[in-house]
Design a protein around this nucleic acid. Structure first.
Lengths: 346, 346
DNA sequence: TTTAAAGGATAAAACGTTTTACCAATATGT
DNA sequence: ACATATTGGTAAAACGTTTTATCCTTTAAA
């Protein structure tokens, strides 16, 4: 069996209380000599407090749960990396929960995490999180009295901390970039329409084209699901329509678009410009590196972790929400508009 | 505060013992009527056992730790996905530990996980794990009495369960594929030489060229670090030498090779054939999809999890080790040897 | 000399469970 | 009528900590 505090106390001929007091550096009147004896004995026996017992009595575990859709997705794994980094720095532990974009599991996992006594939750909703669904999670979290921070995706309800990008600005920047290259007919591959983050990007898009005096054309908007297939499906849908550029609301769908275009014999960016969103790892190493809007994903993960820990420890919080700024990364998938290049079905 | 078993007992006017017995379905002589009362009350109060207390007394937490290098790497995130899936299926919980390929952290995390009372560890060593380093982890794990399963990377020591691919065969298959396409001068980008998995692939390579009566040429072997940069550096080193194909010991390095070749104006596969290893997600969606040796990563994760749980629960184990079979996935980055295509410095 | 304060350490309760051993009341067999 | 089973349930210990209140000495102050 592992060494317990009793073993240390016994070996040092001291009480359990003394050992605990010393090891936890509590203000007490224990002589220097005794203190040293405790440290020495603890080290000899390789004593490490059993965190189950500690958690039980302190009602704190220094453990947080991370709920996300799919860790295989580079966006989430980068996020997880940032979060884990920050946890390690602060001596916290991270439990990983993968919902596979199934909201029922969001709920299950919240319950599991509560019964494991995590101190808080970092929550990226699954993609089928409508407002109603979110409300369920929100209520549950509330009834369990669990501190939580939403990452990226959320809905506006009271008393909810969120860390995310300014997606309106992001959508605006992406669109501006294409407009400045001379594109006027810009297709959008959005995320699910009920999601705020997708709606925000679209708002940014509309703002930009309006400023450029271009009418909004519903037929250029394709609702995707943030997955690679949405990109290829979008191309099938869009082909034959008049457009010279595509703004995909995430990089994954942008890859799909590129693949789809290629399959139809169209070149990026010669025939069609494509801009993505997220700047995940792949985007840089593609044969035609993707122009995209960068989210500082790792940083956002760290920020969210810090915020959650602050909430848990009841430190004075600055802003309830943290909004990051998007950044335009120009690579090779966007080019100036060429009149001749209007796409046609092959 | 959360509902405790005492609250349930109080409300139902029963003892804590009775409630516990009923809820855990223990053989006991509690009347059907009482049982129903217990279930009803527990449900009403939304009772969920505090797993800290349960863990403390049962000396089981149904929690395992996963130690890996970098979750951003698609190989590991796919692995983590498989592992998490299996954990969820069986009602286990997963703690994620990211070592950033720093062996010191392997050690730290093993200690942390032990103090959190995980029941076992799934261990992917960091890349700087020499035999000595591994020995330290191994000894620590032993002294903590922690069941563990190594994934992919390990060293041959007694009493160690490992789940991995047959890398000798994998190396052999990759090389055979290139040989069959007519290539005779095949460069290798290996992993660190002290790692068994890299050495095994090289063994497979040597076996294949020997069978084809081709002499082993040390100058065609470049020792990489399994990262993308190793691939580009390898190209710099190799250029000017006589070779028509490259076998990169993982897909990441294969991408690096492709990028490097492209930077030097060489085409894949027209000028140089490239084969990778792993078959991670990217490989399929590249402009020139990568021919590679597939590791069933998700499956391996699940298998490792099952094995670990079996060990923890002392179920009869079949084989101590599980060796998966490699599979050749032919895509577009390899082509038949063309005499004219010998590379030259640009 | 008595009282108060300081110094050094500890006993015991508490956290929320599980589990073992036991108890009381009723029913059964002789 | 008595011993014995059976039925239905509970008290209390244990898990490994932290923390509060308390205790005994010794020293300082009155």
């Amino acid at each position: 069996m592992r060494t317990t505090i009793k073993d240390v106390a016994a070996k040092a001929n001291l009480s359990v209380t003394t050992v605990s007091l010393v090891l936890n550096n509590k203000p007490s009147k224990i002589s220097q000599k005794t203190k040293e004896l405790v440290f020495k004995t603890a080290k000899e026996l390789h004593y490490r407090p059993n965190q189950l017992a500690v958690g039980l009595i302190k009602k704190r575990t220094k453990t947080i749960g991370l709920i996300l859709s799919d860790i295989r997705n580079n966006f989430f794994s980068s996020l997880a990396k940032g979060i884990e980094d920050e946890c390690r720095r602060k001596g916290w532990t991270l439990i990983l929960c993968n919902t596979s974009d199934n909201h029922q599991r969001d709920i299950e996992y919240i319950n599991v995490l509560a019964s494991k006594s995590v101190d808080g939750i970092l929550y990226c909703m699954s993609i089928d999180s409508t407002l109603e669904n979110f409300q369920k999670s929100y209520d549950l979290l509330g009834s369990l009295n669990l501190p939580f921070v939403m990452i990226d995706r959320s809905y506006p309800v009271p008393n909810r901390a969120i860390v995310r990008l300014d997606h309106i600005k992001g959508g605006y920047m992406a669109t501006r970039h294409l407009l400045e290259l001379g594109h006027k007919r810009i297709a959008c591959i959005t995320g699910p329409n009920y999601l705020e983050d997708s709606r925000d990007r679209l708002t940014g898009y509309k703002k930009a084209i309006k400023e450029a005096d271009i009418a909004f054309d519903e037929s250029l908007i394709f609702e995707g699901g943030y997955d690679i297939n949405s990109g290829t499906r979008a191309v099938d849908d869009l082909l034959g329509k008049d457009f010279s550029a595509v703004f995909a609301f995430n990089d994954m769908m942008a890859y799909g678009v590129c693949m789809g275009l290629r399959a139809h014999g169209l070149q990026v960016p010669a025939d069609i410009s494509v801009i993505g969103y997220d700047d995940i790892f792949l985007s840089e190493i593609l044969e035609v590196p993707l122009t995209t809007i960068k989210q500082p994903i790792g940083l956002m993960g760290r920020a969210a972790t810090q915020k959650l820990i602050s909430i848990i420890e009841r430190e004075p919080l600055g802003e309830k929400n943290t909004i990051f700024e998007p950044e335009l990364i120009v690579r090779k998938s966007t080019a100036a508009y060429q009149k001749a290049a209007a796409p046609s079905r092959t």
